[in-house]
Structures are given as C-alpha cells and as structure tokens.
Design a binder for these strands. Structure first.
Lengths: 175, 175
DNA sequence: TTAACTGCAAAATATTTGCAAATTA
DNA sequence: TAATTTGCAAATATTTTGCAGTTAA
C-alpha cells in the first residue's frame, strides 16, 4: 500500500526509488521521533541496499518538501516526525526521557496574540515542556539544574522508542 | 569589577583562572546569544592566552552550574545566554534571523495548567516563535515551508549581533 | 535516454578528551 | 604543595559532498 509520504513525493515530481520508498515507509510506520541512525537501522531491516547517506538525503528532502519536521530534544542528534498530525507540542519527562505529545488551541491563540503584539505573523513555533511526574520524589536534582535549552547534559535524551534503540542511541552519543 | 558569573563561580568553589574570568566577563557583557566560536573571538580580543577548548569547557561548566543556558536556534551550533534575566522566550524573524526576547505571564500560567492536566510539574520549558514582520511581502516562501523545528534549512540562523559576526557565523555553517 | 539518484569514502563541522605543563587556592 | 585547569593536538560524532556508476520516468 502506498504511504502518504510516497504520494506527496510523486505529487511533487520526485522519483520514487526503492530506497526512498523504504525510508517513507519507515517514517509512516514510526509512532515516535527517530533520529537518522535509528531510521537507517529500521530501513536496513527492510532493505539491505541502503546507505546512511541516502537516509540523510531523504530526510533532508522530505523536510524541504514540508513532509517531515525536524525536532531537537537535546542529545545532539536531529529527530524526525511526519507533519501529518497537525500542530502539537511535546512534554518531555525529565526522569525518563519519555515524550508526550499534546495540543492546545488556547495556546495556539495566545501565540498569535503575542506575536501580533510584537508586530509579527506566526510562521511556526516550537514548544517543549520539561516536566516531572507529580508526586515523583526529586532524587536527581543535579540532573535538572539548567535544562532550559537542552533537556540536560546528563538527562536521558531518548524517547518513547523500544529499549533496544534507547540504549544504543545513548551509547553513541557524545554528551 | 567582579561579574555576577564570577561571584557565582567563587560561591561554588571553582577556581577563578584568568581565562575563566575572561569568559565570564564576555558572557556578562553579551546582550545577545553568542555561540562558542563567537565567545572565543570576543575572549581572544581581551586575552591572547585562551584556547577554544577552554571556552568549550567553561560554557559546559557554567551550564552545569546553572549560570548559563544553552539555546538552539537552528544552524547547528549551541548558543548561550546568562540565566540572570528570568524566564523569557524568543521570537525569531525568519527573514532576518533577528532574535527578539519577550515574556508573558499568561503563557507561564497556561504552561502550568497544561502540564498539570497531564499530571506533571513544569521543570523548565522552551518556546521559540518563528515569525514574519507584519506587512512584509512573502518573497521567500520556499524558505519557510517546514521550519517548525529548526527555523529553516536555509533561513539565516544568526542573531542580534553585529554584522561582522553574523556573516562569519553563517559562512562556517554546515547547512 | 537522461536527469535524478545512490553508494562509498572522504570532507566539513562541532565538540570532547588525553596528557604534560602551568596555575590557583 | 596539591588539586585544578589549560593548551595542544588528536579523537569523536554528526552531517554533507564529490564522483562514478545505477535507475526511474
């Protein structure tokens, strides 16, 4: 079955190579926010004949086409998700690194109000909330001193992905 | 005169070397959001005897101490600002890359409400708005297709800094 | 057929680190 | 003087690119 991403590519006159199709499929199937390395891993499982350079080229292309959005949850790697789900934001659990998506129309409105007040139209925005589950004891205060920009130098920067990815992903990380 | 950053370092029992002092001074004087390369440039002007490795080590240290916050405005480099100014957000002009800081207590409240609804306490958050000056003709629609995460692959990722920095900064960028 | 695409390895960019020498408290 | 810190250069990590060969339309 043809994925939405494939359809969009065809509409925009891009060649659908086997590799491109595989990357599109992997992205369509992903319910999380994989980085390039993880996309490459999943793609390789479906098709041996794919190189990581092609994955990089594909996500860049898809992003340029507005099919994908690049995210930065800290950890030094770009992460990706399809644009199909409409505007939404992310709440990152600082204890576990788990990512929760949420929407809020009121917030939407507020952003436009604020931008308007400054004389701007909103083109896009990003909002990431770092939080701790209510009632969770703070056993790790050192972790969350200054996570404002990157979640924290030493907080888990992983995701809602299966353990295997999580661990491998962190191992290869430079921070 | 001793900078706030220096004072905090001493309070936390860190040695104040000449280099550290210079980096602290440069950061205290910065009204913008310099990256490491720019910090190194400004520090070098004050003191020849400083290497970029030391600047990297200093900002990492300061960030761990909660004295600095790391920001990501796209462009592949981390940018820094002192934490002293209290919570505020950033509006990035997608045409010029100029960064405008703003606050909004209502937004503050809303974030706590939203997090609470999901069962979380807010530890920190980041909000970046990408906007276009009202009335500015859209001569560059290609630029802003999918800037949700990074401002845009090809939008200026510079700042409110002097032209000289802006240009050098972009030149060395990989995107 | 041909313009677009891929793989590979090398380059570019950003950041970290090992170690010997220098410096602060 | 002892523990930290620095400079330098080399190592790592992520992403991009040149080029020759392959492939979709």
């Amino acid at each position: 079955m043809e994925t939405r991403i494939e359809r969009l590519c065809v509409e925009r006159g891009l060649k659908m190579t086997g590799q491109r199709r595989v990357v599109a499929r992997v992205l369509s199937d992903a319910g999380d926010h994989p980085d390039v390395e993880e996309l490459y891993r999943r793609a390789s499982a479906l098709d041996q004949h794919i190189s990581i350079a092609t994955v990089y080229r594909s996500v860049r292309l898809f992003e340029e086409q507005g099919i994908l959005e690049r995210r930065d949850f800290g950890g030094g790697r770009a992460r990706y998700e399809p644009t199909e789900d409409g505007p939404h934001y992310h709440l990152i659990d600082v204890e576990t690194g788990k990512v929760i998506e949420f929407q809020d129309p009121e917030h939407e409105r507020l952003m436009h109000t604020i931008a308007g007040r400054l004389g701007f139209d909103v083109v896009s925005l990003r909002l990431e909330l770092f939080g701790r589950r209510q009632g969770a004891a703070d056993k790790t205060s050192a972790r969350v001193q200054a996570p404002a920009s990157q979640p924290a130098t030493n907080a888990p920067s992983d995701d809602d992905a299966p353990k295997a990815w999580t661990e491998e992903s962190i191992k290869g990380t430079r921070r």
